[in-house]
Design a protein around this nucleic acid. Structure first.
Lengths: 137, 137
DNA sequence: TTGTCTGCAAACGTTTTGCACGACC
DNA sequence: GGTCGTGCAAAACGTTTGCAGACAA
């Protein structure tokens, strides 16, 4: 619920409205690690039978603008969303398809300059086989 | 043309057929840095008026399997393709939309293990404002 | 000749859009 | 009352697929 409180404040400050759907979606993101829009939609459907995907996408966009979540492009053809505020990267297992958080420092960092380019955001995607699948085979 | 020769050998070795379309597409990738499937299609259309997107995608898949190119997911909703064989990463300028190659070593590397996960591939995407746009403003 | 590749068209899945109704300030 | 958000439907977009005919080997 911690994120919910923070979101309410941020929405108010920026003149956005506080709606049940927006609060519910941030709750999901606190609960699940890297959901897709579809997963969020399906999780909310029992409680919000009238919910539409448009609202899910709209809300995710607002949350991204507020800096509350980031969009992850590690999987082809589907975006995942992440509310983990700590700087970290992602690993996708090609066997089980699960996404793991990876906390490793790299020399690349937001705020730095590289060849004259100003870096604002860094996304690192790792691909391979996760620990569980390595043992399982 | 260097890549064309290499591709012909690889196609032959692996039992793939050598078609004009496949050779033309590797030529484009040697010529342009990070084209999308659409860009490749449009560049080839004057010379191959009967060309279809299906062939472009099919060929790009074959080239990826042969290890000749990599698919870049730095832009949302569109895949770019890269025939630069040297290990490097990518930077996307949010103002001009251009993609630049960035050669910086990171501690993350294919072949290494991280928290028990076997890393097979690493993709680093940097976002910000490029040198040209920084000056231009 | 054989099997693969091409081009076409239609399908696919995710995401976006336009619009009218409803909710909140 | 006015504005913003929602839900719905349809559209958009990049990409994939099924198939018949064409082509490389």
């Amino acid at each position: 619920m911690e994120k919910r409180e923070k979101l309410i404040m941020q929405l108010r400050e920026r003149g956005f409205k506080i709606t049940p759907q927006r609060l519910a979606i941030i709750d999901i993101l606190e609960e699940i690690k890297h959901p897709s829009a579809e997963e969020i939609y399906k999780m909310l459907l029992p409680d919000y039978p009238m919910l539409s995907m448009a609202t899910v996408y709209n809300t995710l966009e607002v949350l991204k603008e507020l800096g509350e979540i980031t969009k992850i492009g590690i999987k082809p053809n589907v975006a995942l969303y992440d509310a983990n505020p700590k700087p970290h990267h992602h690993f996708l297992c090609r066997l089980c398809g699960e996404v793991f958080d990876i906390a490793v420092k790299t020399p690349l960092d937001a705020g730095k300059k590289l060849k004259g380019h100003k870096i604002e955001q860094v996304k690192v995607y790792l691909y391979g086989v996760c620990a569980k699948c390595l043992k399982g085979v």
